[in-house]
Amino acid sequence: MSAPTLLSGRGLKLSFGAVPALVDVDVDLWPGEMLAIVGESGSGKTTLLNVLSGRKAPDSGVVWYRDPNDHLHDVHAMPAPALRTLHRSDWGFVHQDPRENLRMGVSAGGNVGERLMAQGARHYGNIRDAALDWLAQVEIDASRIDDLPRTFSGGMLQRLQIARTLVTHPRLVFMDEPTGGLDVSVQARLLDLIRSLVSRLRIAVVLVTHDIAVARLLAHRIAVMQRGRIVETGLTDQVLDDPHHPYTQLLVSSVLNA
């Protein structure tokens, strides 16, 4: 992996009062790859996601982002408007609870079209066509375009959130337990969808999950976290088939026993 990284964290430290959430974390992400961060609840994985995406400032350490013009940006030193613009265009964030990222009182089409309109799209017909296209891509029936998300199932809401996030073709998407809280069968369908979209659009993804099976299915590389540290990292299959760190071994074996 000698190609330049898309996103890098170095020496990330963060404590909540006396509780350390991140301890000396280094992490890299290359363009077009999916990195899964796994660990139990309390391992610091969501905190790491928030720090990498600029949503939470670390106590120390730095996060670098390489933009399409090959310029490096210190994510936590960027002015708020610039970071906001980044989140609306080049970046995306898929929340575990889709309601956090959807306007529940706005139709599905409006939800998907919003990022386009924020970027200056001014042709209603084109915006609606783009929304229809994306609803199809996330397997939501076109007839639902004017329906309010209130009427959608959990799986549909998540797919709508994904459409809303991907409509501006971001290069980097952060995902926080995107299949959490969904039925097993719904999860499977969603994971398939994410995998095909991400590979087709060559999106780099940082995916947080407690579910090893999800990491195995989706991610190229995996980072295992325990109590705020990354204890093991590498290609997903290699790490999961031959775990070196005792904690990784524990995680892997507990899945096999389940």
């Binding site: 408007p81 906001r84 306007r103 706005v106 089409g109 919003e114 990022r115 309109m117």
Partner: peptide, 19 residues
């Protein structure tokens, strides 16, 4: 206003036309 972030208003107009 400070961030010129008027997406909410455009969404409202979109909703009007769809409704």
């Amino acid at each position: 206003h400070a961030l010129s972030d008027y997406g909410l208003m455009h969404v409202k107009l979109y909703e009007d036309i769809s409704r």
